[in-house]
C-alpha cells in the first residue's frame, strides 16, 4: 500500500480551523498535501450529508475542524457538531465502514502546528486502512 495516496476532504470553520490552516501555511510548516479544504462558517453547519457524500464519492478520509469548546463564534455550534458526528460515526461503524476515516478535531486560529499534525496523523492512519472501499462500488 506504499503507493496509496489518500484523499482527504476538510470541512473547517471560518473562525478557528481555517485560520489555523492558514497559519500552518504562513508559518511554512510542512504537512502532506493530501487534504482539500472547504471553508464553512461553523463546524455546526456541517450536515452529515456532506461527509457522507464525500465518502460515497470515494474520499478516503474527512476532517471536520472547529473551535475548541467554549470558543465557538456562534456560542455552541461545535457542541452540536460533536453530537452529529458521534451519530454519523456510530452509523458508519454499523455498516462496516471504519469510523476512523472521519475525524472531528478542535483546532484554534493559533494552532497551525496542530492542524499540520492532524493532517499528518490522518494520512498515516488512512495509509494503514487502505483506500475507501466505497470507491470500488458502482451500485451505490
Amino acid at each position: 500500500m506504499s503507493d496509496f495516496d489518500p484523499k482527504i476532504l476538510g470541512f473547517v470553520c471560518n473562525w478557528c480551523t481555517y485560520a489555523g490552516a492558514d497559519l500552518a501555511g504562513t508559518s511554512r510548516i510542512q504537512y502532506p498535501p493530501n487534504i482539500r479544504i472547504i471553508r464553512l462558517m461553523c463546524s455546526g453547519s456541517v450536515d452529515p450529508l456532506y461527509v457522507l457524500k464525500s465518502l460515497l464519492e470515494g474520499a478516503d478520509g474527512v476532517l471536520i475542524g472547529g473551535c475548541h469548546p467554549g470558543d465557538c463564534h456562534y456560542t455552541n455550534g461545535n457542541y452540536k457538531a460533536r453530537r452529529r458526528i458521534a451519530i454519523l460515526k456510530s452509523i458508519l461503524r454499523q455498516i462496516g465502514l471504519e469510523d476512523e476515516r472521519v475525524v472531528l478535531r478542535w483546532i484554534s486560529a493559533s494552532e497551525g502546528k496542530r492542524f499540520a499534525d492532524t493532517v499528518t496523523e490522518m494520512v498515516g492512519k488512512l495509509k494503514e486502512l487502505g483506500p475507501n472501499p466505497l470507491r470500488e462500488r458502482w451500485q451505490i
Binding site: 452529515p48 450529508l49 457522507l52 457524500k53 460515497l56 464519492e57 470515494g58 452529529r84 451519530i87 454519523l88 452509523i91 455498516i95 470507491r135 458502482w138 451500485q139 451505490i140
Partner: peptide, 27 residues
Amino acid sequence: WARQRKIIKMPVETLLFHLTRLNHMVT
C-alpha cells in the same frame, strides 16, 4: 462520475439518500 468510476447506478445517490435520512432522523 461515469468516467471516473467507469460505471454508475442510475438514479444516483440512492444509498446517500438512506444514509442521510438515517443521520437526520433515526434518533
